[in-house]
């Protein structure tokens, strides 16, 4: 009983860490314009819209976060087997991973922007200086919390995988959660807020992202400020729930039916979420209906 209580406590703590990680990850990727909205940032100069938005085209978020978290987990693991204090090891390893992330971010911005010279898109050095550091800070939070969570799984819950392997699994999961949940807030709600709500992005509007702010010109930091309100927390809840439910079912039901209990519980959780998703989809279709053509205004 005591071990189950401890397990539930660790599960809650891991879920909380994952929530912070998800929120930081989404905000980081939106400030840097990573993930699928990046294609519009890349496209804008080709359509004649010169902008001052960061262009962090490292790869999709899942592989990129797979890398940052795995670096941190691997280096922390190596430090720990030499006898270093785990907290110190994870902090130093996360700092090293963030250094790699920052270098990748600058080379991506410089490379993509320099290759757009034909369309008169200049390289803005102040964008690199001001935005890279902010994405690095958010990435540090995301990486540190994810690796700390993985460490909890190994040390407190006795997970059989070594830390680097958990790092690659949960790093990719973190990137996937942030990408799937957070990007609509950035892509459709922020870059295209001049379009009518629900209009989608027609071909004619491709690349026509919002480049000017309420005062002056829009910076990528404004995008982070905007998505930190809803997109970030939504991603955090998504990743936190993934981690929490995954551990919860294992801690509670692993002893049932020789391990099959946890698997059955997992399938049941997936079925419940499928029913919820289907209900929301049907509800949304009924209330908003299919896309309709704009009604002709009578002359």
């Amino acid at each position: 009983m005591e071990s189950v209580l401890l397990g539930i406590g660790v599960t809650a703590l891991a879920g909380a860490l994952a929530t912070v990680a998800g929120a930081a990850e989404d905000t980081e990727s939106n400030i840097g314009s990573q993930g699928d909205p990046n294609s519009q940032v890349q496209l804008a100069p080709q359509m004649g819209y010169i902008h001052r938005i960061y262009n962090k085209a490292v790869s999709g978020e899942p592989p990129a976060y797979g890398l940052w978290v795995t670096i941190s987990a691997g280096v922390a693991w190596a430090f720990m087997i030499t006898g270093m204090n785990p907290v110190l090891a994870i902090v130093i390893a996360s700092a090293l991973a963030v250094f790699v992330q920052g270098v990748y971010a600058t080379t991506a911005y410089l490379g993509r922007t320099a290759s757009l010279a034909k369309f008169e898109q200049p390289v803005y050095i102040d964008v690199i200086k001001s935005v890279t550091t902010v994405t690095m800070a958010h990435a540090f939070v995301a990486i540190f919390t994810t690796v700390a969570m993985c460490y909890l799984l190994v040390e407190a819950l006795g997970h059989p995988f070594p830390l680097p392997l958990l790092g690659i699994v949960w790093g990719i999961a973190l990137g996937a959660a942030g990408s799937a949940t957070g990007n609509p807030f950035y892509g459709k709600e922020r870059q295209y807020q001049t379009q009518n709500f629900g209009a989608g992005v027609p071909i004619s509007a491709s690349g026509n992202i919002v480049r000017y702010a309420e005062a002056g010109q829009r910076s990528s930091l404004d995008n982070g400020w905007f998505t930190a309100k809803l997109g970030g927390p939504a991603s955090g809840v998504c990743f936190g729930l993934i981690v929490f439910l995954e551990l919860w079912r294992t801690v509670l039901f692993e002893s049932v039916a020789g391990g099959w209990g946890a698997i059955i519980a997992g399938v049941v959780i997936i079925l419940i979420f499928m029913i919820i998703d289907r209900y929301i989809e049907v509800w949304a279709r009924k209330n908003y209906g299919p896309y309709v053509k704009a009604e002709e205004v009578s002359a």
Binding site: I50, H51, R52, L110, T113, A114, L116, A117, K118, F119, E120, Q121, P122, V123, Y124, I125, D126, R211, Y212, Q217
Partner: peptide
């Protein structure tokens, strides 16, 4: 690069 600018507008 087309231009290498520091703290310049669009």
């Amino acid at each position: 690069a087309f231009a290498w600018l520091d703290a310049k507008p669009i």
